[in-house]
Write a protein that binds this DNA or RNA. Structure first.
Lengths: 201, 201
DNA sequence: CCTTCGATGTATCGTCTCGATACATCGACA
DNA sequence: TGTCGATGTATCGAGACGATACATCGAAGG
């Protein structure tokens, strides 16, 4: 999931780790931001896999006498997506398997980069997500119906609020699906990089 | 957080790990259940800390000849809360510090065991939680206002839905607070174990 | 009768994530 | 001049997670 988000952000422009984290936090919705303890290892993995390239200033340049003990001495590192990384991003973007919607976190990131995804794939992901959330809702419903009598006020309120949240999410997804279906013919199919541009324009 | 939930459950009755996990999943709201990889180490830690005691059937009893190689040979383990564990639980239950509401997961568990918490502490926790969520809401709001023009349809919808969810949570908390305030005089102050029972009965 | 299946049940492993922290530079403001 | 907060890179230990192994038992079904 982190991999996907990083590729998506670097796909737009190269960035520092710090900037990456800020943008990430915004995508993830303000709450639930990502920590450096996840970000930097992920960047390291992706660099090792050849998905991104790093560009850091020469560590030992223009240092005449080294009066400070030069411990640390870190420079800014700019991360850039490679051709391989773009390829990987497009694989991920076109994937509509269950992993795309079963996890809420990944689904959110997928949504944030939906403009890179074809309309039919978008529809499959949205519908898959709705099915997942509907299953959760049914589980919650039956659990609540089974235990309603034994629960005190606060536990009951907790379950009720959770159920309503899930319910609202289903309705929200349904609206998105409707919009997507209606706009399917008219929406701009985004970014077919090597493809032939459609006749219009 | 896990520690709190386990103590709370064992406070009601001794249990197996398996049963513990099921109850835990129900408290956590169906989604977001706890895994064995978290549960058993937690139980081990708590046993080492003296908060719970284990009761397992004698491993080498009534085995005349050991025809099976007896590898594994696990028996059911019943976990029981100790006096020390009950003490720890009451400390946690009376704690209304920021850690009780800043983390949504712990707050949910706290709610699930609110019947063990005095009304004034309940009120402090609910109000703290509301302040936390309100801060999140303001962050989301300003972020959304700042970037509304640059966002595509789906990113916008994602942020909007997130903001509405947070907004609903604030309203829900406000209702809980109102109820708690109104019921403060009449609500049963629960479970003062060594304390003096109030004059009424 | 026997066998397979799912629920119950305990437990560990490797991988990853998180929060805290350390270190360093820079501009702003007092 | 000092010192504060934002920017910036990076690691550490604690612990959570998913997958998996192993084991028992009752019920369904050939």
């Amino acid at each position: 999931m982190l991999e996907f988000a990083i590729l998506g952000l670097l796909h737009q422009s190269p960035m520092h780790g710090y900037e990456l984290r800020k943008q990430l936090a915004q995508i993830l919705g303000g709450l639930r931001s990502i920590s450096y303890g996840s970000l930097y290892p992920a960047l390291k993995r992706m660099h090792a896999a050849g998905l991104i390239s790093t560009e850091e200033p020469d560590p030992h340049a223009l240092l005449p006498a080294d009066a400070p003990p030069l411990t640390g001495r870190r420079g800014k590192v700019v991360y850039t997506i490679t051709a391989e990384g773009k390829e990987r991003f497009h694989e991920l973007v076109c994937d509509s398997g269950p992993e795309a919607y079963d996890d809420g976190g990944l689904f959110g990131v997928r949504l944030a980069f939906f403009r890179h995804t074809a309309s039919d794939v978008r529809l499959r992901i949205l519908e898959g997500r709705r099915r997942t959330v509907e299953r959760q809702r049914e589980g919650l419903r039956s659990s609540l119906a089974r235990t309603r009598e034994r629960l005190d006020h606060y536990t009951l309120e907790l379950q009720r609020h959770g159920l309503e949240s899930v319910d609202r999410e289903v309705r929200w997804l349904s609206e998105l699906i409707d919009t997507e279906r209606r706009g399917a013919a008219g929406g701009a199919p985004p970014e077919t990089p090597g493809g032939s541009p459609p006749s219009t324009k």
